[in-house]
């Protein structure tokens, strides 16, 4: 039931968000229409990449403290969401950077951190898939997820320092003074993407639980054969 409400809400908010992004928000003076990518890109990065990182951290810590498998499922789903959203976010960043900076990618602080984050999410997944034993998988992935997320602030610090010592492209997607209509559009997009994230996450969590039940029943069936 709750899931359905989330689904409906995310559809209801997504339509006006798309309208606002493409029709309502004014065209930015220097960057033109390319700047509109930014309304999708920022929520994807904040909710999808950083939000998933915090949730993965909570999931791993929760499992190591309680040893309850539900936290392991929580962590696994967060990482999965992290992979999808961070990849989408990087894609939008490249689509924006090519016309504006003239390059697909610039190693600025946020961009580099996002790439490292994506690599950690993917490594977390590869580790999961190479550990067949359920208990071992939960424990080792819990440890790796925790170590990986502890890395994020240190990473940010080092990349930030790196940037302050090297010249970087100066135009940021936000531009200077933010038009109130732009701010409204960004807010709407934030709400829509947060709801979408929440809906997919809850769904994925339910599926993960069912997958586990199926695994268990398969084992029981095989044992009784």
């Amino acid at each position: 039931m709750k899931v359905k409400i989330l689904a409906i809400l995310s559809v209801i908010t997504m339509i006006p968000a798309l309208y606002m992004i493409f029709l309502f928000a004014p065209t930015e003076a220097t960057q033109g229409n390319a700047q509109r990518i930014f309304y999708i890109h920022v929520p994807l990065a904040v909710v999808g990449a950083y939000g998933s990182a915090i949730m993965l951290f909570i999931g791993c810590l929760g499992f190591l403290i309680t040893r309850d498998l539900k936290w392991d499922r929580f962590a696994a789903c967060s990482a999965e969401m992290g992979v999808v959203f961070t990849a989408a976010q990087l894609l939008t960043a490249m689509m924006w950077a090519k016309p504006i900076w003239g390059t697909w990618y610039a190693f600025d602080s946020r961009g580099t951190l996002q790439i490292v984050l994506l690599l950690i999410y993917i490594a977390y997944f590869m580790l999961r898939s190479y550990l067949p034993d359920r208990e071992k998988r939960a424990k080792l992935c819990g440890v790796f997820g925790l170590l990986g997320m502890v890395d994020v602030p240190i990473n940010y610090l080092s990349i930030y320092l790196f940037r302050t010592q090297h010249p970087q492209p100066v135009i940021s997607p936000g531009g200077g003074g933010v038009d109130p209509d732009m701010a409204k559009t960004l807010l709407m997009s934030f709400i829509a993407i947060t709801l979408l994230y929440a809906y997919v996450f809850v769904r994925r969590l339910t599926i993960a639980k069912v997958e586990e039940e199926v695994d268990y029943l398969t084992q029981v069936a095989l044992a009784n054969e």
Binding site: Y130, L131, L140
Partner: peptide, 25 residues
């Protein structure tokens, strides 16, 4: 951690390199 997986030699760099980015930088 990687010693517990089937392909331990390959798994270690996959886990290790992303985490040691701050050290490398």
């Amino acid at each position: 951690i990687s010693a517990n997986t089937r392909m331990k030699e390959v798994m270690l760099p996959i886990l290790q390199i992303p985490l040691s980015v701050p050290v490398i930088i």
